[in-house]
Amino acid sequence: MATTSGPLQRAQTRLAYWLVAPATLLILLIYVLPIIVVFAASLTDYTLVSDYYEFVGLDNYRKMATDAQFGNALHNTFVFALLFLPAAFVVSLVLAIAIQERKRFRSILEIVYFLPVTSTLAAMALVWSALLDSRQGIVNGIVTSLGFAPLNFLGSEDLVLISLAAISLWSIIGFNMVLFLAGLTAIPTNLYEAAAIDGADHPIDKFLKVTWPMLGPTAMFVAITTSITAFKLFDTVAIITRGGPDKASEVYLYLAFLEGFEYFNMGYSSALSLVFILLILLFALVQAVFVDRRVHY
């Protein structure tokens, strides 16, 4: 800091440290310390039901490599993300573009699509589970009235992840759409006018030459936050399917929850959580490094 170290400078430096101390302390307490504790726990065989524990080194991490449940959860999470991510991104972008060009109903449509975001997903999960019920659900009522056989949306191993993806989609579209709308509004209109004079007045050209590149930073933000949402899928699984049928919807965080709070394997659960954090960090990092350079000018 200061190259000259007079009494005044030293007093100022001391004051600066005092001023940042509360925030630093809070960050350490709330974020850093828990991670350290989780890491320490992941090196033990600590269980919730016993005070006795032993240091087991990296055994918990080694266990993952051979644990079929871990592989299954990882697989389910990625399948879910593959179903959910493109739809959550593309549908909200298309909606945002469509709504932005409306003059009259724009605010009404914005509110309608944003409503699910304001609701509590845990409560809505119950509603969805009623709607998608294989026997009394309204959705199946519509399916059968159209002449198809009823579908077991939440009870079939093939359909359950699709159904969960649809529910998550419903809950996030409004949020992503509002983000995209903000990005679209920030694009200067005279760029579109310049494009029209330059000959780029076809909707595809307008999108490719102006909208998409100018939306870059927003799109990256949406992509990262939506990916994290996909990976941390938990509440609908916990409330509607409890990982079923036959572990077909047992996703990563639900497995970590089961291991920790149902089977009481806190050590293993901690290891799972830590790996989860690292995965997300890695994912965001890759996106940031590869995409960031291309979206900011």
């Binding site: 200067p188 005279n190 760029l191 310049a194 494009a195 029209a196 004079i197 330059d198 007045d201 590149p213």
Partner: peptide, 21 residues
Amino acid sequence: TAPKHRNIAMVFQDYALYPHM
């Protein structure tokens, strides 16, 4: 007639250059 077919060119006040190009 669409702007592109009028054979006109326009310079905007704040230039309206494409920032990503």
